[in-house]
Amino acid sequence: MNKPNRHIFVCTSSRPTGQQKGMCLNKEGVSVMMKFMEEIGERDLGGDVAITNTGCFGLCEQGPIVVVYPDNVWYKKVSADDVEEIMDKHIEGGEPVTRLLI
């Protein structure tokens, strides 16, 4: 596997036991994750962009949280409807989506 240019982390409230519960799960974190996976596939960016679901970032009231590395950009209250904009502006365009920044 090649090292990706960017790595997107999406809080889905996973726990070490595999159980999912919590704010980001209740706020559609899994839907956000699935939409990112769909967009990465449709844009043929699988070798350039990796995606990983995570446990809690500790910012539950602002979830779902999305973090993009190596840019160290943190997004709050991301919905599946925001994913296309993040992909267009940030992942492909290099400019973070300011209205979602933490």
Results as ranks from 00 to 15, higher is better:
S31G: 08
E95K: 15
R15A: 03
L45D: 03
A80C: 07
H90V: 04
T52H: 07
F9P: 00
H7L: 11
G41Y: 08
A80Q: 15
F57T: 02
E38R: 06
K27D: 09
N2P: 06
E92R: 09
P4A: 10
I91A: 03
I51G: 01
E61H: 10
M34V: 02
M1I: 11
N5Q: 15
Q62G: 05
I65N: 06
E84Y: 12
S79V: 06
I65Y: 08
D44W: 04
T17H: 04
W74E: 02
V10N: 01
V68M: 13
V78T: 07
M23F: 12
R99V: 05
P64N: 01
T52G: 03
K3Y: 13
G63Q: 03
G93M: 11
I51T: 00
E28Y: 09
T98D: 15
A80W: 10
G29H: 08
G63L: 02
T98H: 14
L45T: 00
M34G: 01
V83W: 00
K77L: 09
L100G: 01
M23W: 12
N26I: 07
R15H: 13
D48Q: 13
S14F: 10
I65K: 04
R99F: 04
V10I: 06
E61Q: 10
E92S: 07
V32G: 01
D48K: 10
E28R: 12
G46P: 01
I102V: 13
M1E: 12
H7P: 03
N26T: 10
E95A: 13
G47F: 13
T12V: 14
Q20M: 15
D71T: 12
K3P: 04
D71E: 15
L59C: 05
G55M: 04
I91D: 02
L101Q: 12
K27L: 14
D82R: 14
R15I: 01
H90M: 05
D82N: 15
G22Q: 07
A80H: 13
E95Q: 15
I102N: 11
V97R: 06
T52Q: 07
V68A: 11
T52D: 09
V67Q: 13
V67A: 12
R6F: 10
G47C: 06
E92T: 09
E42F: 08
M1W: 12
V83H: 05
D88P: 04
L59W: 10
F57R: 01
D82H: 15
N26W: 11
G18Y: 03
R43T: 01
V49G: 01
G58Y: 06
M33G: 00
R15P: 02
I102Q: 12
N72R: 15
R99K: 15
I8P: 04
V78S: 01
K89F: 09
R43M: 03
V97Q: 05
G47Q: 14
S13Y: 07
D88M: 12
T98Y: 14
V67L: 15
N26D: 15
I8L: 09
E61L: 07
E38Q: 11
H7Q: 12
